[in-house]
Design a protein around this nucleic acid. Sequence first.
DNA 1: GCGTATTGCGATCGCTGTACCCAAACTAGT
DNA 2: ACTAGTTTGGGTACAGCGATCGCAATACGC
Lengths: 249, 249
Amino acid sequence: MTAGQSAPSIWMRPERSAVGRPAQRSRAEITCAAVGIADREGLDTVSMRRVAAELGTGAASLYRYVETRDELLDLMIDAVGGEHQLPGPSGDWLADLVAIGEQSRTILRRHPWLPGLVIARPVIGPNGIALLEHVLAVLERHPADVATKLEAFAMLNGVTAAFVQYELGGGAALQERNVAYLQHAVSSGEHPRLAELLSQGPPAPAEGGHPAGDGVCADGGVPADPVGRYAHLITRVLSGLLGPAPGAA
Amino acid sequence: MTAGQSAPSIWMRPERSAVGRPAQRSRAEITCAAVGIADREGLDTVSMRRVAAELGTGAASLYRYVETRDELLDLMIDAVGGEHQLPGPSGDWLADLVAIGEQSRTILRRHPWLPGLVIARPVIGPNGIALLEHVLAVLERHPADVATKLEAFAMLNGVTAAFVQYELGGGAALQERNVAYLQHAVSSGEHPRLAELLSQGPPAPAEGGHPAGDGVCADGGVPADPVGRYAHLITRVLSGLLGPAPGAA
DNA sequence: GCGTATTGCGATCGCTGTACCCAAACTAGT
DNA sequence: ACTAGTTTGGGTACAGCGATCGCAATACGC
């Protein structure tokens, strides 16, 4: 009767019916295959036919589980969101949120197709809700209003995605082209300040490990390793949005 | 001889040759048409045929100007980057960078397809170089090393894109679905802290204007209007990466 | 005017997302 | 045990996509 006619969300439809011929596959199985293909061969090789072939079935069958390809992408996004581990609040909300961000960074680096996708398509599913609920729980006693907390959640995800995409340089091929063009632009004249940039560390921004100390350093210094840099950045973002840390200065 | 065989970058190829039949169109003209379509009808209606039709020509003709569709997307990204106005450094690098960020936010909101695209495809062209050069000029006397300045540049773009995408909610349709699912999830049980979120301000995060004061407020307070919130956020990010403001405490 | 270099673009190929249709496989009711 | 109803499996088909090819048209240097 009062139905909003636009297909609401895949997670509001029941996965399988009680009657009729039972399904041979599941959303999770299809999602897992799609994520595997994206990890291995890139996001735009994830076609319905390719995923179906991976599962040994026909492309049309997938449409019993998913209405469109975009819905499959939604499932993929939420599925990797489930890779988070969410321990109980420690009492230090800043530390808890930074820990979540560091997990997110690891997850995003594991699935290089994710940063671009999650920004273009900020969809929320069961795992996204669990994450949001966890963040709200961490911030339960924080005096900020809900809108601010929601914004902090969005920025925790968004800033992390942006940072990882910067770390990865948008993929090796693209980064190579960018560097080549930068050199070209510098050599043919006009940009004096770019020269010093290219004479130093442009080719590979960073790698993944944690070679040095594991995080936030004394206020004022900027860490050298990527993990420390990320922690430093996300700490500033979060304390900027939510005020300074609870106990710390 | 020493050629890296992968097609280097569209901006390293000359746009037109001196000899032979002269071209009837230009990269700029095609780019402009494509941006117009994307603004009006969304990014994924930007097909080669559609753009060609807009220009009254055939799809194959466009491949004289652009090698692939992705290259057209690169042109679009860089073209809107040219909408920035870059005044000379004022001496206060933080204020200058925040001003750039606010321009970026306006531009990104004008082209809602951009945030997702620029994160997924962080390509740099002439306008991107001009912007980078400008940022480096603003930071000329800043003591940080080049890698840190480059990171600040990347985060200025990345964080702004993430913020705008959060403001826009990923498009009306997607936001509607998300809200519907959140309500569904809350009503069917488990997530206590989500309830208070939905009882308050979830449907539209923000609108664009600048109803109240125009920016950074006294330290400690968090502004209410979106413009102030953005300024607050980007200020925290930049001073987090580059140390505190030059004159200010 | 003639060779040479470039562009314009219709025709075409392989691939994509997805609608349609019917056979197969299951449950519920009798 | 049979029928009626409901759902899934998946082959086929279609419109549209990005991209290639080949040829006619159009310019310049000589």
